[in-house]
Amino acid sequence: MKPFSSRVYLLRHGELAEQGVLAGHTDFALSDIGVEQLNIACAELVNIERIISSTLKRCSVFATELANRQQIPLILTEQIREFNFGDWDGCKYEYLWQQTHSPSIGDFWQDPWHVTPPSGESMADFHERVATWWQTLLVDIAKTETQAQLVITHAGVIKQLLAIICQLPKQSQQQDIFSIGYGKLVCIDIFIDENAVSWPKIVF
């Protein structure tokens, strides 16, 4: 095949209407400020051929409106939902820090690879979910020769993707060196060689 380059914009959703909460799979909406953050982030993006979005409404509502406005395809997928915090999901941080049961939220933050939230997702499963989606996306880019696409998702997902691209040790907490603010864009350039092998790099 003929080598080509593609670009993936990773966009974290904007500010939530509900503040101070652990928003994993809980379906919170965006505040007005959050919507404006996304509008500003997308204002200068050009030649986007498609949008891929988490199904949670803090991503999907804006993604649907943008896709309709620009008349481009939209793909909604549960694979790039945020981490599932189980029984802790949707709770106020203040409440969680006051709990003393085991495992606690503090145990999880200190050792997320060995502590799983009650009724929640393990970090290993979360990593595998995101990594599988990323590899599927790379194969699809090579097949379709998509030049530019926007992915609207969550901070945890973006951190995992950056860790994968940087080839950080899977079971480390090194992905926490990345801080992704509300409505922030991360640009990934991907070179597809003649053997359909993808070579991504982070663009600052």
Rank of each mutant, 00 (worst) to 15 (best):
K2D: 08
P3D: 06
P3R: 01
V8Q: 06
Y9I: 10
L10P: 13
H13V: 05
L16I: 04
A17S: 08
A17Y: 09
Q19L: 05
L22Q: 03
G24D: 08
T26I: 14
D27L: 06
F28K: 13
S31K: 00
S31V: 07
I33K: 12
I33H: 05
Q37S: 06
C42M: 10
T55G: 11
T55C: 14
T55M: 10
T55L: 13
L66G: 00
L66V: 02
L74D: 07
I75K: 09
T77S: 09
F83C: 00
F83N: 02
F83L: 00
N84I: 05
D89C: 09
T100N: 11
T100M: 01
S102T: 14
S102A: 10
P112N: 02
H114Q: 03
V115C: 04
S122K: 08
S122Q: 08
F126T: 02
T132A: 14
W134P: 00
I141N: 12
Q149I: 02
L150P: 04
I152T: 04
H154I: 12
A155D: 06
V157Y: 14
Q160Y: 05
L161H: 07
A163P: 00
I164W: 07
C166R: 09
L168H: 06
L168D: 09
L168N: 09
Q171M: 05
S172Y: 01
Q174H: 09
I177E: 06
G183T: 05
G183W: 02
L185Q: 09
V186H: 08
V186W: 12
I188W: 13
F191W: 11
F191H: 10
N195Q: 15
W199K: 11
K201Q: 15
I202Y: 15
